[in-house]
């Protein structure tokens, strides 16, 4: 009797769950597996093309050096963008969570995270408009400074970093804000009553307690930046060759899908290692 009810409940749960999870399986998990399979082929298995299994695509990554160098370049880009975002974003989150009081806080918080949820391509394009030679930024700087300056930021490493920080900064603000807000004000008052000054409180209390949120934000920035291709493409011009654009090229320009799949899979492995390392802290952050 009891087991009949239990069985009926299980059936109901299955009915409600299976559409969503079947969809995720077909559109995410099977494709990821297919990518692994593709990465060990000599050619795409479509039509009457000849193909057989090979480790050549991975060998190419190890031997060519160019690919590994690009991955390293992308990892460096990820580190730079992440570090800048953390340095800029954490103080902002602190001000929002612990300095601003009352109703304006919620509105300001919404304003800060709103761009994050809007179209990222368009936001990168807006930087192209601002940074281009003789563009708005050049003119603004020249209007303020008495001597002529040529900034020429467009199509440079700096342009890419600025655009990416702009894209992902709200992420670290969001996660740090949540962590900082969870710190009870009475803890800070207790520290002050014990004689601690602001810097001591920051170092011994606020930073350790908000670390999970900070790390979560950093990981959630680092991972997509390493895989970015649209931003370097648009803001970096000829300098904008990164691991992401390399993968893009395999699929839309060179049409070497097996190599692209292998490169993608290597990136996925890197991402999974990072997520795995960070997962104890991410779980603490309870996002």
């Amino acid at each position: 009797m009891a087991s009949a009810i239990l069985r009926r409940d299980r059936l109901r749960a299955l009915t409600l769950l299976s559409p969503a999870y079947l969809w995720l399986t077909v559109a995410i998990f099977l494709p990821l597996s297919a990518m692994v399979f593709f990465s060990v082929l000599t050619d795409v298995p479509f039509g009457d093309r000849e193909w057989h299994l090979t480790a050549g695509n991975y060998q190419a990554f190890l031997e060519t050096g160019t690919y590994a160098r690009l991955l390293w370049k992308s990892l460096q880009l990820g580190a730079t963008v992440t570090a800048l975002s953390v340095l800029i974003g954490f103080p902002c989150a602190y001000v929002l969570a612990k300095v601003v009081r009352g109703r304006s806080r919620e509105a300001l918080f919404l304003l800060v995270v709103l761009p994050f949820w809007s179209n990222s391509l368009v936001r990168i394009f807006s930087w192209a408009i601002v940074l281009r030679g003789n563009g708005v930024l050049d003119r603004a700087v020249n209007a303020v400074l008495p001597w002529p300056v040529k900034l020429n930021l467009m199509y440079s490493q700096s342009a890419i970093v600025i655009g990416l920080v702009h894209s992902y900064l709200p992420y670290v603000i969001l996660t740090s804000y949540l962590a900082l807000q969870a710190i009870d004000d009475s803890l800070i008052e207790a520290a002050r009553s014990l004689g601690a000054k602001r810097l001591t409180i920051l170092r011994r209390l606020i930073l350790p307690l908000s670390m999970p949120g900070l790390v979560a934000g950093a990981v959630l920035i680092f991972v997509p930046v390493v895989g970015s291709f649209m931003e370097p493409r648009l803001l970096g011009g000829r300098l904008g060759t990164y691991y992401g654009t390399l993968i893009e090229d395999q699929f839309v320009a060179v049409f070497n899908w097996p190599l692209g799949a292998a490169l993608s899979f290597i990136l996925l492995a890197v991402v999974l290692v990072i997520l795995g390392l960070a997962s104890p802290i991410l779980r603490k952050a309870r996002l």
Partner: peptide, 21 residues
């Protein structure tokens, strides 16, 4: 005199023990 220089001791309703220590 700011709180931190008043040489006081305080016990809070929620205890406010530092959870990371």
């Amino acid at each position: 005199v700011p709180v931190e220089a008043r040489e006081i001791g305080m016990v809070f309703q929620s205890y406010a023990l530092f959870p990371n220590m």
